[in-house]
Design a protein around this nucleic acid. Sequence first.
DNA 1: TTGATACTTCGACCAATTCCGAAGCATTCT
DNA 2: AGAATGCTTCGGAATTGGTCGAAGTATCAA
Lengths: 231, 231
Amino acid sequence: MSNNARFAEIAALAGDPGRASMLNGLMDGRALTATELARLAGITAQTASSHLTKMTEAGLLLVEKQGRHRYHRLASPAVAQMIESIMRIAAPEAVVRQLRTGPRDMALRAGRTCYDHLAGHLGVSITDALIDAGHIELGLDAGEVTDSGLALFDRAGVDIKAAAAKRGRILCRPCLDWSERRPHLAGAIGAALCAHCFNHGWIRRIEGTRAVSVTPNGHRHLRETFGVRYS
Amino acid sequence: MSNNARFAEIAALAGDPGRASMLNGLMDGRALTATELARLAGITAQTASSHLTKMTEAGLLLVEKQGRHRYHRLASPAVAQMIESIMRIAAPEAVVRQLRTGPRDMALRAGRTCYDHLAGHLGVSITDALIDAGHIELGLDAGEVTDSGLALFDRAGVDIKAAAAKRGRILCRPCLDWSERRPHLAGAIGAALCAHCFNHGWIRRIEGTRAVSVTPNGHRHLRETFGVRYS
DNA sequence: TTGATACTTCGACCAATTCCGAAGCATTCT
DNA sequence: AGAATGCTTCGGAATTGGTCGAAGTATCAA
């Protein structure tokens, strides 16, 4: 198969409404069963099975058998980045027609996980607060954690040692938010921060979606520790 | 239209072999006429016209009328990044079946432009040389130009001032190469370096493709100035 | 063993989409 | 003006591909 045909094949897989729903449902990095994904996409189990087989064979998904369940998840962070990059192109229109967005969409805009880090209004707010306080610097191409940021993360107990392994300098990745149209903190640092928030009960996943809500406790800590003015 | 439907629509547009050919043909950032794109995709002008209309309406392409020609180009760097991210998922299979790759594919693997910067064996070789000499540092998430790199680019006449505007530090973006499976230099610095190579006749575009070849003059300068061992 | 759940395979139907020939419009060349 | 080029629109044929009912396999629970 030619290179171009492979390209079209991959894009076409993401180009079906049902499969698109499933892929987006897997964007939080969790592994879901075929039935869960079918319900999520609003299709029957047979149809979902067919879709999942195709996506798995094409290398978009990995499947793990566990008893009578089959857990599906994105095959790699690269797949998540592909989905995010498509979302970024697809979003502008949605922003213009914001009137039509339902409550579920609103929750996603307020806060969500983007595979392994935080996005939406929440993600951008945290990022803004870190920038304003001089804890990180973020350009279009890349970003960096400053010495004060390093101290802050250390004090707060966010484990960014793994990301620091390379050299002295801690670099991080900006990710353009499709709902806010502004960059938020991604990469290893973003992932560590997101994990920290979940582990300490600062944020909680809203049942069945990848939207997250901030707990009262989280509100307080985010404000006190990171200076987030989360409106 | 729901957010998910928009997502599927965009992905489906990229998921047709003809349209995929066109998008890849536009990946060098140039603007091509409808007829050129039709020939490139191996379809008739009518069919191409229909495809181009759809992609333009969806915001993937911009069209500029000039006399009786209509020049089409990618609507934004974000679109180029989307295409690149899909390519990254689509590539592994091609690597395995490398036996089947024709001469055109080989040229692309040797060196090509990735929208505005250099990729392929050429792009990776330059990046490796810069890293080895300590001119840049590149992590998975982000990279940075060192002081010695700053001096080198200045001495060589590569204009990276624009990218330096923000703050003192020069950050750069790594881009995972789909053919080499290793990162190469992208972002503003990568674009500036690529432009420099074209402007000085170090590299030349291979007619009708986005593959590039290194001129004898370019070979010498890349070796002497940047220490590239381009095999 | 019996029944229930999770998932897949098969087959047929239906809708969407691609495709090109023919014709039409706009611009440029002679 | 007349002819040629670049591109678009129209209409109908052919194919692809999603969908679900029905039936089949595998696992688990009593």
